[in-house]
Amino acid sequence: MVLFRFFEWLGNTPWSVALHESRYVFLFVLMLHVLTVSVFVGTAVMIDLRLLGRTMTHVPASQVIARLVPWSEAGFLVMVVTGSLLFYASPLARYENVFFRLKMAALVMALLNAWLFRRTAYRRVADWDLDPVPPRRVRVTGALSLALLAVIITSGRMMAYSAYWFG
């Protein structure tokens, strides 16, 4: 209820209304958000496929991670900034959108998955760095990451249809 009131207030702030009513600024932000999928999810997928032993198997896993994670993080930053703006344009509609909630839940789980990996298996990366196919634990992390990214993309796309289906 507190959140509802807060988002109601947020949606009535002048900048939120302006963003909501602007045709081109909003569409530009949306375009940036969608196209950056190719950078953020794209590089993350290549890392996950390495963790699964499905690509770049001759490259040490730590190298793939060290060189591609900065790009994934940069893409993520763009996603968060543009995503926040899209949220700010109509806070209540997003908050009440079931797919938005699903997307945020999957996002938190994906971040948790990455964080846990850093704290556990990645600390002992030297043990499996050169393995073409990393140990099972690492492969589970990669598979989980891929699955969660798929949920994020799916729920993100479905957000647009929420009102159409359930409205």
């Binding site: 999928v37 190719s38 794209g42 290549m46 591609l68 790009w71």
Partner: peptide, 28 residues
């Protein structure tokens, strides 16, 4: 459309791994 979007991610990753390397910002 959702599956189409997943294809975008896959192509993005596969293209960037090579192009970033050619640009000098990848797996050098």
């Amino acid at each position: 459309a959702t599956i189409h979007l997943m294809g975008l991610a896959l192509i993005g990753g596969a293209v960037l791994v090579v192009d970033l390397r050619l640009l000098g910002w990848g797996l050098q």
